[in-house]
Every structure is written in C-alpha cells, then in structure tokens.
Nucleic acid binder design. Structure first.
Length: 567
RNA sequence: GCGCCCGUAGCUCAGUGGAUAGAGCGUCAGGUUGCGGACCUGAAGGCCGUGAGUUCGAGUCUCGCCGGGCGCGCCA
C-alpha cells in the first residue's frame, strides 16, 4: 500500500514511527500472501533494522533466516519469495527489495516516501518525533530526594539528570509524568544540623558528628532574631528541643536552595513530599494495618516484621522497632500507598545503586498490600566517580568536603553536563573528571550539535532576507546524494524517539543528534542552499535544511538542552 | 560467603542476536576566491577481561573463572 502524502495539521494526533511500521507491515502481508507454504507453529516476529552498511539499503530484515526452520526451506528461497510478493516501485513505499546471502532482505525506500516524511516535519514541527501513547499511563517519577541537610552535591547530580531525562522521554511517549521529590525534614540528622547552627551562634565548637560545611556558617549568619536570641540564652538542658526548632528552620532554608539549584539545572518538581507528612496523615499506620489484615505481618523480639521472604526477599524486614518507632522502611510502605491513592498507574523510583538492597522489600510490600508489583519500578543508576586531575574527589556532607552541583554547573555548563549524562547508560559506572570536563567543554559534542542548529538558523535568516521561502516538497531533489543522505537521517528521527521511549534511555538520542549534525555539515559542504541561479532548487534545499533544524531542535529539547539560533 | 551492576580503541563511553564492532577526545597528515572554520577529508589505533556452551550467526544470550564497584542493620 503506497502511503499518500499525509494531510498533516497541527492538531492531528501524533503518529508512530510510521515508515518503519509501514515497512514491517508490508513485509508481514507479503509473508502471509500465500507465496510461502504454511509454517509449523507460530510465525516469528518481523524484525527490521537499519543496516550498518548503506549499500544494504534503508532497511534490512532477517525474517527469511528466522523462517527457514519452521518452513523447512532455505533462507534464500524464502527471501526471494517474500521479495517477489512485496509491492515495489516508484509509486510504492518500497522501491526495491534485494536478497543477499545468507538470506537477508534489503529494502530501499522511494523518494516519494522520504519526501512525505520531510513534509510532516515541516508542517507539524512540534509533533515531529513524538510517538503516540500505546499504553497511556500517569507515572510518578521520584528522584533526587536528598535530605535537606546541605546543598546538592555532584554526587546527587546523576540522579537529577537521570530522573529528569527519563521523565522527558516518558512525556515524549505520550505519558503523563509527575516529578516528585521526597525528603525528611524532621529526623535526627535535621536536629543534628540545627545543633551545629546553634553551636556557632553560641560561639561553641560544632559537635564532631555535626555538619561542618561553609553553608552552616551562612545559615548561622542569617538565623532569625527570635531563634538567635533563644539559642544564645538557652540553658544546656533546653538545647535539644531548640536544635530541633533551628533544624527545621535550617532544613526549610536549605530546601529552598536545593530547589533553586535544580531550577538552574532545568529540573522542576511537581510535588515536594515530606516524610513527616506521611506519618502525620496516618499513611504509615494504615499501610502496616493493611499488611496485617492480609496476614503479612508478625511480632518477634518485640518488633513488628513484614514477611518479605514470602515474596522472595532473602529476609523479613522490621517495620516497627521494639521501642515502637517506625523504621524508614515503614515510611516507604506508607508512601507507596499514598502515591497510588493519588491515581498513578505506575511508580518509578530513581535510586543510586547503593540502594539496590532495598528494592525487593519495597516492591514486595506493594504486592503484599494488593498493588501490582510490576507497577512499582526501581531504576538504579551506578555511581559516578568524580575525579580532579586524576585523583578521586572524596565527599562527605558532614565533614564539609564536597563539590556542589552549582559549582559543577558553573564550571562545565548545564548543556554540557546534561549531554554528558544523557549520552551514558545509567547502569554504567562512569568517571567524571572535572578538570577534563572543563578543559574539554569547548570540544563537547553538544556544541557540535548546537552549532549545526545555529548554522541552519543563519541560513534561514539569510534566505528570508532574499525572500526565499522553504518548499515542503523535496521529492525532486532527492536524486542528489547530499540531499538523499540528509533526508534519510531526518526521517529516522521518530524511530529514534520511539526506541528511546521503549528502552527508557537517552544514549540513542545523543548519538543520533551527533549523526544528524554530521550529515547536515556534509550537506552544507556539498549542496549550496541559497543559489540565485536556481530558486526552485534553493527553496527545496532550504526546506530540507529547515527539516534538519526542526529535528535537531526537537532532539535537543527531548534532552532539555537549548537549541541556539546563534552561538 | 551470598546478591546486584560493570569489564569494548591511548582516555571517556555507545553498540535493539545479524553483514566489515562505532563516536567524541587525544595523536598524525591535509582542506576555505560562495550560505557561520565551534566546520570538512584522511590515517594510525581492537584476541570486545577469559574459557566453554546455545545458535545458520554472539560484543550482545547461558554457565564457570579473573578483575573492579556496590549492597547484605530494630541506620537513613
């Protein structure tokens, strides 16, 4: 079935990576057309991919190799039969289908099909690259969740980037996302922070187990008068409750600073949830009661335990200590129930790999409460080893030895930092050499991609000066090699987005953006856009350049990176 | 000891079971009488930690081993 030039409007719902889908569908119907004998058992799924070697066409399929066994025929025979049953030609989607040993099917698209996609990018730029929600969900993504005992450090950075990038990818896939930050502003560490501030106000040394960073002094300097007076004059036996009060004040202030740091990073949260509120609103108590009703709780050694082993964990877990106080895990359980009560279909936690030991118990507790385990997903990111001049930067928030997120951003820039994390799998442990990053920030691939965008913007501006408007129908220039190569790269974009959504990863997007920029630079070198001697061709090349610009901008936007008009 | 993650070019890292394993940086050699040289062209550089297995086909899947990281609390 030949695709017609789509009647695209801004309001039309997003379509899938339609070229790839259409090619797969054409293959499937060719297989089922009767050209082949009936298979024994189920047909293998039709798989297509872009071959590494462009000489092998736009798409390649291994379907004949997969069918060889169930059909008991040679792969080459099957491939020839499928190729013969495939509608091909200049008016169709597929121009040619070739068979290559040991049984690959190499497919080439028509210019007509490519041009139709370029037109879509130009006529609905905002929709270009979005994929339709196959299974629309309302997803809660909880990340960072560092307690407000000090500024965010570069140690917190990866979680912030990973969580935000994942959220953006899910949104690109048509899902509703709530970004959530969970924090404890009432625990022992908060009192500890308060005690450190109080000590400074009183001119006493900060306790050894207190907080020693420079920000503690800044907090002491801006302590409100009422708390300052209370701190200076407090009797020794009144210091504990005072430290608690001052701690709460300090935590609120630190939290504001964290929010501001995250905003500089381009990350905004929809919900800030305090652990204390879960207890105050009875979520923890009710969740444990719910487990008890279902028979998953018992008392031993004076403590209350959740029978996590019944769900595959390697040991049971305490929810109420023998002194009756709830554990941190108990709050986690209450939080799961609280999140689902807000109507989320799916919960995602972004945790550092050092938390992997807690994954099983939280998911088990969710299941034990009657929620679906697969709706509670934990994404663990590996640790970043921060290095300065080859030496690992050791960090301790309490000792005051750390590099803040703000300092990192000041040194390497938000766009470069985002690119760095977006281009690496969250599961791989990575080294981040700060000095190297600074030195190489000008050589960062992110600028290469941004430069391509700015270069096109410049061409578009010049074209406008000479009243040259882009032509959305580029089919007639695709016989040119530079144009065809660029068009093929652009048309791949929806597939890249779809793959990113399915894999919940962004490395493919950064790799693609780099390749697209490379293709554009090659096109720029070999095919002059603005050429007074051939206005019609100029308009079409301008259309192609515009489509590349739209695609670069959308790819960067997916990563939260700016697409500058000039640099 | 048990569990999870990782091991790919000098460095930092990509690589949905497919055809000749890639990118950036670094190194070396080149390129501009026209739209932005933050660009382009080329070269060198790999027993994909290791040994078996599955498969028509393994960097990718399975198992063992070696090396590295993390976790195994009535801590948070």
């Amino acid at each position: 079935m030949a695709p017609r030039a789509p009647m695209t409007t801004q309001t039309e719902p997003f379509l899938r990576a339609r070229v790839r889908d259409a090619v797969a569908a054409a293959l499937a119907s060719a297989i089922e057309s009767g050209a082949l004998p009936a298979p024994e058992g189920e047909l293998p799924r039709v798989e297509i991919e872009h071959p590494a070697n462009p000489g092998h066409g736009d798409f390649a399929s291994n379907i004949a190799l997969k069918l060889a066994r169930p059909l008991r025929r040679s792969p080459l025979v099957i491939a020839r039969a499928v190729a013969g049953a495939l509608p091909t030609g200049e008016a169709a989607l597929i121009r040619s289908a070739d068979v290559a040993p040991p049984g690959f099917l190499n497919l080439r698209l028509t210019d007509h099909a490519l041009a139709a996609e370029i037109r879509r990018a130009l006529e609905a730029p905002d929709a270009w690259g979005h994929v339709p929600p196959v299974n629309p969900r309302h997803v809660n993504v909880e990340f960072v969740s560092a307690n407000p005992t000090g500024p965010l450090t570069i140690g917190n950075a990866r979680g912030a980037f990973v969580g935000d990038l994942l959220s953006r990818v899910l949104e690109a896939g048509g899902q509703r996302v709530t970004r959530e930050y969970y924090f404890n502003d009432a625990g022992g560490q908060i009192t500890n922070l308060g005690a450190s501030v109080v000590a400074l106000v009183r001119g006493e040394p900060i306790p050894d187990d207190g907080y020693h960073g420079a920000y503690v002094h800044e907090l002491a300097d801006v302590l409100p008068d009422d708390l300052r007076v209370a701190a200076s004059g407090a009797a020794p036996d009144a210091l504990e409750p005072l430290a608690d009060r001052v701690g709460r004040w300090a935590a609120a202030r630190v939290r504001d600073g964290i929010e501001a740091s995250l905003a500089r990073l381009g990350v905004r949260f929809d919900v800030w949830k305090s652990e204390a509120s879960l207890h105050e609103e009875g979520w923890v108590e009710r969740a444990v009661e719910r487990l008890r009703e279902r028979g998953h709780v018992y008392v031993e050694d004076g403590a209350t335990w959740f029978r996590s082993t019944a769900f595959g964990d390697d040991k049971d877990r305490v929810v109420y200590r023998s002194d009756g106080r709830p554990t941190y895990f108990a709050a986690d359980i209450g939080y799961v129930a609280e999140k689902f009560s807000r109507g989320f279909d799916h919960l995602i936690y972004i945790w550092g790999a050092d938390h992997h030991g807690t994954v099983a118990r939280v998911r088990n507790a969710a299941e034990a409460m009657g929620f679906r385990k697969e709706h509670v997903q934990v994404l663990l990111y590996s640790w970043v080893r921060f290095v300065r001049d080859g030496v690992e930067v050791s960090m301790s928030k309490r000792a005051g030895e750390f590099v803040t997120l703000d300092e990192l951003l000041a040194e390497v820039g938000v766009d470069a930092a985002r690119w760095f994390f977006a281009s690496r799998a969250h599961t791989s442990a990575i080294d981040f050499d700060i000095e190297l990053a600074k030195k190489q920030s000008n050589e960062n691939p992110v600028y290469y991609v941004q430069y391509a965008h700015a270069r096109i913007a410049s061409i578009v501006r010049r074209a406008a000066e000479s009243s040259l408007a882009p032509d959305a129908d580029v089919s007639s220039i695709l016989s040119g090699a530079p144009e065809a190569a660029l068009a093929r790269e652009i048309v791949r974009f929806p597939e890249v987005v779809e793959d990113a959504v399915l894999a919940e990863e962004t490395q493919g997007v950064t790799a693609y953006a780099t390749e697209l920029a490379t293709q554009f630079h090659a096109f720029y070198r070999d095919a002059r856009v603005i050429d007074a001697s051939d206005p019609a061709r100029s308009a079409r090349r301008l259309g192609l350049a515009r489509a590349a610009q739209v695609t670069l901008a959308n790819a960067l936007a997916l990563l939260g990176i700016s697409a500058p008009e000039s640099m």
